[in-house]
Design a protein around this nucleic acid. Structure first.
Lengths: 203, 203
DNA sequence: GTCATTCCATACCGAGCGATACAAAAATAC
DNA sequence: GTATTTTTGTATCGCTCGGTATGGAATGAC
């Protein structure tokens, strides 16, 4: 459904350029990524960026949204596993792999992007925190279903378990950003899984 | 042991000023903290800062060193607990409290300070990573002793367990920076402790 | 007292920041 | 073809950044 355009056509693919921007933000954080870094990586110049995305912050929000949809697709896929234990393990394993992909910066954009409120009043950090919380809520909902299904022991707090899983995931992201290798992250997952409760009658 | 001075005496306490700088770096990160922010919080002006600390990066390193010595003293104290399980629990509990102190910014300086390599080539991020690794090594050494003493099951990998504990600690720091309250962090510690092995003959 | 030394206050530097003004270039509409 | 619309390239804006030059203020040495 290409809309019939009038003026000069855009000389770049907006999504491909966004992927380049993702990597720059990922590597340098929101504040550390300058417009010169971004536009040169995207292969466009400043006015094209402003026309296509608005401004730097909007570009970042678009980048995070695309990152959540593509680079973190494994998180949604993990929710489809049949048992809570399998959901959690698949998520943490895929996460450990994603944090150490050779063709991407180490770590996780939604954490490296910016934890502290920089020059702005922490708007970027809050946006990222909200984005992460969305994932935690989705996992919590899936685990609540597992409790109902008897897949997790009765009395298990789904929100607390989801928060624990995300905590391990975020800690692994911090480690990955510091250069820890994939095998070590999986060793951490090995240990972390020992804390995940399993129902007695579960397979 | 006050050294006999010659010229005009310094009009501020270097350590107190450092404490103010710690909070600014903690809240805004290394890049987000401007010299104007820093010096006005420290109650001094720029030339005094440069005379006393060298430059912004040196000020940051001094701040992190003081932070590690004072604000993270609980980590060293935890190592003195008699058993590995108690070492780990005391560390994670004290950590959860420290991450949510009312009189300090939420979270942890050594993580909020900067995860991604900003304008510099990630020197600050690497410095912080090395600082965190120091803590992990200290814990690993303590846990290795616990294995020797039979306090942890034979075959336990002390480095892996130490890394797991630090991962939980860092994940909690990310959550704390996002505004998660103290009780929730302790609930995560409750779960995390389930993964810590205990020797059968341990008390 | 005078001198030497150190610290503090103001005012400023070049550089890089995010963001834009403007006109040439490239497409469609007619 | 001409008119219209949109994108692109260049050159630049005002601003803030980290860092500093300079001269006066405050102390010890003598």
């Amino acid at each position: 459904m290409t809309v019939k355009t009038k003026g000069r056509p855009r000389g770049f693919d907006a999504d491909e350029a966004l992927d380049r921007a993702i990597e720059v933000f990922w590597e340098h954080g929101y504040e550390g990524a300058s417009l010169t870094d971004l536009t040169s990586a995207m292969g466009i110049n400043r006015p094209s960026m402003y026309a296509a995305y608005g401004n730097k912050e909007e570009l970042f929000r678009r980048a995070v949204a695309r990152y959540a949809e593509h680079d973190m697709a494994y998180a949604r896929e993990a929710l489809a596993e049949p048992t809570a234990y399998q959901v959690i393990e698949r998520f943490l394993r895929a996460n450990a792999d994603a944090l150490t992909r050779a063709d991407r910066p180490a770590g996780c954009l939604s954490i490296q992007g910016g934890l502290a409120g920089g020059s702005d009043n922490g708007e970027v950090a809050q946006f990222l925190a909200a984005s992460r919380l969305g994932g935690e809520r989705a996992l919590s909902g899936r685990l609540a279903r597992a409790v109902e299904e008897g897949d997790l022991p009765a009395g298990t707090d789904p929100a607390a378990l989801a928060r624990y899983v995300m905590t391990v995931s975020e800690g692994n992201a911090v480690h990955a950003a510091a250069g820890v290798d994939r095998a070590s992250l999986h060793a951490t997952v090995d240990l972390a899984m020992r804390a995940v409760p399993r129902s007695p009658e579960a397979p």
